[in-house]
Amino acid sequence: KLATQLLVDLAEGCHTHHFNSLLDIIEKVMARSLSPPPELEERDVAAYSASLEDVKTAVLGLLVILQTKLYTLPASHATRVYEMLVSHIQLHYKHSYTLPIASSIRLQAFDFLLLLRADSLHRLGLPNKDGVVRFSPYCVCDYMEPERGSEKKTSGPLSPPTGPPGPAPAGPAVRLGSVPYSLLFRVLLQCLKQESDWKVLKLVLGRLPESLRYKVLIFTSPCSVDQLCSALCSMLSGPKTLERLRGAPEGFSRTDLHLAVVPVLTALISYHNYLDKTKQREMVYCLEQGLIHRCASQCVVALSICSVEMPDIIIKALPVLVVKLTHISATASMAVPLLEFLSTLARLPHLYRNFAAEQYASVFAISLPYTNPSKFNQYIVCLAHHVIAMWFIRCRLPFRKDFVPFITKGLRSNVLLSFDDTPEKDSFRARSTSLNERPKSLRIARPPKQGLNNSPPVKEFKESSAAEAFRCRSISVSEHVVRSRIQTSLTSASLGSADENSVAQADDSLKN
């Protein structure tokens, strides 16, 4: 292990032709098999893994070397290190390495390699500790012929580059190093199909959405987006994914797998022009299946994007999809995704031109529960009313008269009656009930004795009459309010007539 670390330190600071010789020695160290011998017992696995620490030291050392060589000349050094790393990870899946030390190597290698970024000039870069990406002036992410390196360097940008540029090249004859992302992409596909350690798979799935944002990485080298989509959909639809995973937390289920895969599918929607129609349908189907899991909100957001990006695919699945959405409970976490999906859909009339009455009724059935102001915040309630109004205007004229009683009944049950079921009123009724029952229970537990009763009969009569009056008032709060309003209006009217009579009498006395 110490000798391997010494080789790594020497290679990191070497800029001459001896660098390749040092890498040859490190490569021989990495070539050791990580498969346990067949006769190895389970209690000896930890000791055997400790004997392979030099392999881990070599791989982690290459990660440090690549981070240094990416910004220094010659660029061919970075290319050689990158290829060695990718080849080593491929061996893991070729020979099915399952030892804990092998999983640790893959975890740290993917953690580093999935941080690679590219700008519009195809320059590769890595983020620093502050998250700012520094791009290399010597390494690009696409394949290029050595003699055409300078031509590639002087080509115009596709868009303004992001991030601070690296140091300027030493001279005009500098050759750019090619670090094609397709090599890593193929290893990522192998990981999605064969990885057995949940920690490694979770890391890859968590980092892929951010990497897919940099389309330069994908399009400048032959990366098959179709295969990526197929691998992701197979993970969700195939039963073998959960069987092969180990190291998963207790209670791990298909729902947890959906939570990890759906963000990658959402990021892949922007590549729909490069996906086969069959793959697009598979993607939409997987998102529909996710509606029954805890990732339902993410799936609804993804389907909203699909309705804009892939209208030809979503239009066929939309009638059944809208009916499925009615089975989702009206909760605060689902309110905004569902209502925004319906609001977006209302502005795309070509998608729902074939809707029948059942689909329009489903839209109103989804939106009406969110009009309850005692359960949802003001934004959700306003958005629900907006969706109902928009869809009522957009639905066909023959359907409107049939939906009017349905909508008014839903609004009455969710908006008007919600004020009668407020917690304050319920607590008031509970308190009044307890007050009504309390005197009775006290009389049963403690019967009054005439000799020891010091309270006069008049006081008892007053208290009983007050309790009886309170019971009468607490029967119905709404009736009490109505009666008080009527009494107030009658009182004001009587006072007004009394004032008029007094004024008339005063005038008569003055005349006399």
Rank of each mutant, 00 (worst) to 15 (best):
S49P: 03
A50P: 03
L52M: 11
E53D: 08
V55A: 03
A58I: 00
A58W: 00
A58N: 00
A58E: 01
V59Q: 01
V59H: 02
L60K: 13
L60T: 14
L62D: 01
L62C: 07
L62F: 01
L62P: 01
L63F: 11
L63K: 12
I65N: 02
Q67E: 08
K69Y: 00
K69D: 00
K69H: 05
L70Q: 01
L70V: 05
L70P: 01
Y71M: 05
Y71Q: 04
Y71K: 02
L73C: 11
A75Y: 06
S76K: 09
H77I: 01
H77Q: 07
A78C: 05
A78H: 02
R80W: 01
R80G: 01
R80C: 03
R80T: 04
Y82N: 01
Y82R: 01
E83A: 11
E83L: 07
E83F: 06
E83S: 12
M84Y: 01
M84P: 00
L85F: 01
L85W: 00
L85S: 02
V86S: 03
V86A: 05
S87I: 04
S87A: 09
H88E: 01
H88L: 00
H88T: 02
H88M: 01
I89H: 00
I89L: 11
I89G: 00
Q90H: 11
Q90V: 08
Q90G: 07
Q90C: 11
L91T: 13
H92T: 00
H92P: 00
H92Q: 03
Y93N: 00
S96H: 10
Y97G: 01
Y97A: 02
Y97H: 02
Y97V: 02
T98A: 09
L99F: 03
L99S: 07
P100Y: 02
P100H: 04
I101N: 01
A102T: 04
A102K: 00
S103F: 02
S103Q: 06
S103H: 06
S103V: 09
S104W: 06
S104H: 10
S104D: 13
R106C: 00
R117D: 01
A118L: 02
A118T: 04
S120C: 12
S120Q: 08
S120N: 06
S120D: 07
L121D: 07
L121S: 09
L121Q: 10
H122G: 08
H122T: 03
H122R: 05
H122N: 03
R123Q: 05
L124E: 02
L124C: 10
G125Q: 02
L126Y: 13
L126H: 05
L126W: 05
L126V: 09
P127Q: 05
P127V: 07
P127A: 08
P127G: 04
P127W: 03
N128H: 08
N128K: 07
D130W: 08
G131C: 04
V132D: 11
V133S: 06
V133G: 04
R134L: 06
R134E: 06
S136G: 02
S136R: 02
S136C: 01
S136F: 01
P137A: 06
P137W: 03
P137Y: 04
Y138W: 13
Y138P: 02
C139T: 05
C139S: 05
C139N: 04
C139A: 06
V140H: 08
C141E: 02
D142R: 06
Y143R: 07
Y143Q: 10
Y143V: 11
M144F: 12
E145W: 07
E145F: 09
E147P: 14
G149P: 12
G149F: 09
S150W: 13
S150F: 10
S150E: 13
E151N: 12
K152N: 09
K152T: 13
K152Q: 13
K153T: 12
G156T: 11
G156P: 09
G156K: 13
P157R: 09
P157E: 13
L158Y: 12
L158G: 13
S159F: 09
P161C: 12
P161G: 10
T162C: 13
T162H: 13
G163P: 11
G163C: 11
P165M: 12
A170T: 15
A173S: 15
R175L: 13
R175T: 14
R175K: 12
R175Y: 10
L176T: 09
L176Y: 11
G177P: 04
S178N: 14
S178C: 12
V179N: 02
V179W: 04
P180Y: 02
P180E: 04
P180D: 08
P180H: 04
Y181E: 02
S182L: 03
S182A: 06
F185Y: 06
V187G: 04
L189H: 03
L189C: 06
C191Y: 00
C191D: 01
C191P: 00
L192T: 02
L192H: 00
K193A: 10
K193P: 01
K193M: 12
K193G: 10
Q194L: 08
E195C: 00
S196I: 10
S196C: 09
D197M: 02
D197V: 02
D197N: 05
W198F: 04
W198K: 00
W198Y: 05
K199A: 13
K199W: 06
V200K: 01
V200G: 01
L201A: 00
L201G: 00
K202E: 08
K202N: 08
V204K: 00
V204R: 00
L205C: 03
L205P: 00
L205K: 00
G206D: 13
G206I: 05
R207D: 01
L208N: 01
L208I: 04
L208A: 01
L208C: 01
E210H: 10
E210N: 07
S211G: 05
S211A: 12
L212C: 01
L212T: 01
L212M: 05
L212W: 00
L212S: 00
R213N: 08
Y214E: 05
Y214K: 03
K215A: 04
K215M: 05
V216F: 03
V216C: 08
L217C: 05
L217S: 03
I218R: 02
F219G: 06
F219C: 13
T220M: 03
T220D: 02
T220Y: 02
C223V: 03
C223M: 02
C223A: 03
C223W: 02
S224R: 08
V225Q: 02
D226F: 02
D226Q: 05
Q227F: 04
L228I: 04
L228K: 00
S230Y: 05
S230E: 12
L232G: 00
L232W: 00
L232A: 03
L232H: 01
S234V: 08
M235Q: 01
L236A: 07
L236I: 07
S237V: 08
G238R: 09
G238T: 14
P239E: 15
P239T: 11
K240V: 12
T241L: 08
E243H: 08
E243W: 05
E243P: 04
E243V: 06
R244W: 03
L245G: 02
L245K: 02
L245W: 05
G247V: 05
G247A: 07
A248T: 11
A248N: 07
P249T: 08
P249S: 07
P249E: 10
P249H: 07
E250D: 10
E250Q: 11
E250Y: 07
G251M: 05
G251W: 04
G251T: 06
F252Y: 04
F252D: 03
